[in-house]
Amino acid sequence: MRYLTRQFAIGALRRGHGIEQFLGCTQIGAVAAIQWVAISPMDGQYRVSLHTVQDPDDEVGDLPNLMSLDPVDEAYVGEGRELGSSPDEAEAIALAEQLTTTRSDCWVNHAVAGDEYMDFVRSRRNTADASRQQDQSRS
């Protein structure tokens, strides 16, 4: 599995690399959306941001380039809505876990949340295909 242990997540941040976590799908008005949280080193701090983008239901792994559904993010594509920051790596992770639905055991390296999204799309499609097959076999 691609998840980081807490120590590896802290280590990635200390080395200047971001971490992130795919949160899944949501609805913004009538538009299907997906969300993920990122923690990025920035100016001696660790910035916690929430990203909300349109769900293209496609195997697209470049999440920051998807259409943002958050007006705050529209001016700075891919940066997300800043939720807070901390000078300490562990505190930044704890802050993200307090402010969002992130889980302590599901952090991944920067740019891997896109892989998580692609897995999500494949799983969703497989479930839909299985349901259609069951419906057809009942007919």
Rank of each mutant, 00 (worst) to 15 (best):
F8C: 11
Q133P: 00
A128Y: 12
V31P: 01
E20H: 07
D119V: 03
D119T: 04
G78H: 04
G44Y: 04
A9L: 08
V77W: 13
R125Y: 15
V108L: 10
D57T: 02
H17M: 10
Q27M: 12
H51K: 05
L95M: 15
R2K: 11
T127C: 07
A96I: 03
A30F: 02
S137A: 02
T102W: 05
D73M: 04
P64C: 03
I93E: 07
P41K: 06
Y46H: 15
S104N: 03
E59P: 02
L63D: 09
E116R: 13
E89S: 13
Q133K: 07
V121L: 09
W107D: 02
R138W: 00
R14L: 08
V37E: 04
P71C: 07
L23Q: 13
E20G: 06
Y46M: 05
L66Q: 14
E82R: 12
M42L: 10
C25I: 01
F120M: 13
L4P: 08
D88V: 07
D55N: 12
F22T: 03
D129Y: 09
M67R: 15
A111R: 10
I28F: 01
A94K: 09
A113V: 01
R14T: 07
G44D: 04
G29H: 09
R132N: 02
R138E: 00
C106E: 14
Q98N: 12
M1R: 09
E59H: 04
V72E: 15
